[in-house]
Amino acid sequence: MTEQNSALWLPKRGTRFEVGPAAYTPAAQGEVVVRVRAVAVNPVDAIPGLAYRLVLPWLTFPAVIGSDVAGEVVETGPGVTRVKPGDRVLGHAFGVEKSQNRAAEGAFQHYVVLMQHMLSPLPDTLPFEQAAVLPLTLSTAATGMFQKDHLALALPTVSAADRSETVLVWGASTSVGSSAVQLARNAGYRVVATASPRNFDYVRSLGAAEIVDRNSSTAVAELVERIGESPLAGTLAIGNGSLKPTIAVAARTTGSKRVASAMPSLFVRMGARRASRLGVTVSGIWGGTLKDNEIGPAIYADFLPAALASGVFRAAPDASVVGHGLDAIPEALRQLKQGVSAKKLVVTL
Results as ranks from 00 to 15, higher is better:
Gly207Phe: 00
Ile299Trp: 02
Ala219Cys: 13
Lys257Ala: 13
Ser320Arg: 09
Arg198Val: 12
Asp302Ile: 01
Ser242Glu: 06
Ala316Arg: 03
Ile238Trp: 08
Glu210Phe: 02
Ala275Arg: 08
Val191His: 07
Val321Asn: 05
Leu223Tyr: 06
Ala301Glu: 15
Ala272Arg: 13
Ser256Phe: 00
Gly323Cys: 12
Val280Ser: 06
Ile285Asn: 09
Ala237Pro: 10
Val220His: 08
Asp213Pro: 08
Ser283Asn: 06
Pro231Ala: 14
Val192Cys: 14
Asn215Thr: 14
Pro264Ile: 07
Gly284Ala: 11
Ala298Trp: 04
Asp302Cys: 03
Ala208Tyr: 01
Asp213Phe: 10
Ser310Thr: 09
Ala209Trp: 02
Leu243Ala: 15
Ser205Arg: 02
Val192His: 04
Ala248Gln: 15
Gly228Ile: 00
Thr218Met: 09
Tyr202Ala: 03
Glu229Trp: 00
Arg314Gln: 13
Leu326Lys: 08
Ser261Cys: 08
Glu210Tyr: 02
Gly279Glu: 10
Ala272Cys: 04
Ala260His: 06
Ser276Phe: 00
Arg314Pro: 00
Arg269Asn: 09
Ala193Phe: 05
Phe303Val: 10
Ala309Val: 02
Val224Tyr: 08
Leu223Trp: 06
Ala251Leu: 08
Ser217Gln: 14
Thr218Asp: 15
Leu236Cys: 07
Phe313Met: 09
Leu236Gly: 06
Ile247Leu: 08
Arg252Ala: 15
Val268Arg: 05
Gly311Arg: 01
Val212Phe: 06
Ile211Gly: 10
Thr289Ile: 12
Arg214Gln: 13
Ser217Gly: 15
Arg269Pro: 00
Gly255Gln: 06
Ser283Gln: 07
Ala309Arg: 12
Val212Ser: 07
Ser283Thr: 15
Gly323Asn: 11
Met270Lys: 11
Pro317Val: 07
Asn199Phe: 01
Thr246Glu: 09
Val321Ser: 07
